[in-house]
């Protein structure tokens, strides 16, 4: 089936199998490998992206369901070489080790801060609870997000 999407401002048109997951479409068909796969069951959030302004786990959608949508992925966050405040905060606070969960974490936190620039501690943790990190124990991720909150 024909799928037309805009990802990080670039339009793509591809013929995809109807059963192809959106995450595999992004990674394998569009070669946008920043979003990752950690579980296949929607638990880990490594594939989190923003579709038409809504945070989604891209392993829980088929590529064809995204037809006509505007997609944002981790690759679109930085402005050229200039990291977003949140990306920089992740580095400053050592909120990443292996970096595998990081793209999904960044997208979840980005979506949170867009919706709520001044989240409470509890709201930050709730916003991140759909993203699994096995390296950091979340403490530094929390600190990084909190440091960017107004």
């Amino acid at each position: 089936m024909e799928v037309t999407v805009t990802v990080n401002g670039t339009a793509y048109e591809r013929d995809v199998e109807p059963r192809k997951l959106l995450i595999h479409f992004l990674r394998d068909d569009l070669d946008l490998t920043g979003s990752h796969i950690g579980c296949d069951t929607g638990n880990c959030g490594a594939c989190s992206i923003i579709v038409d302004g809504v945070l989604v786990k891209s392993c829980m959608l088929l590529a064809v369901q995204a037809d006509g949508s505007e997609i944002e992925t981790v690759e679109g966050l930085a402005d050229g070489d200039r990291l977003t405040e949140l990306q920089q905060a992740f580095s400053d606070h050592h909120a990443l080790q292996c970096g595998y969960c990081t793209p999904g974490m960044l997208m979840s936190a980005t979506a949170l801060l867009r919706a709520n620039a001044s989240p409470s501690d509890e709201e930050i943790k709730k916003a991140l609870q759909g993203n699994i990190c096995r390296c950091t124990g979340y403490w530094n991720i929390f600190e990084a997000v909190k440091s960017v909150a107004r």
Partner: peptide
């Protein structure tokens, strides 16, 4: 000293190369 990690720049931008990224 806690100097900033060299790895972070690529990893925060989704520019790491993990094994499933190799094609």
């Amino acid at each position: 000293e806690s100097v900033p990690r060299k790895e972070d720049r690529r990893l925060t931008q989704g520019q790491g190369v993990f094994v499933d990224d190799v094609k």
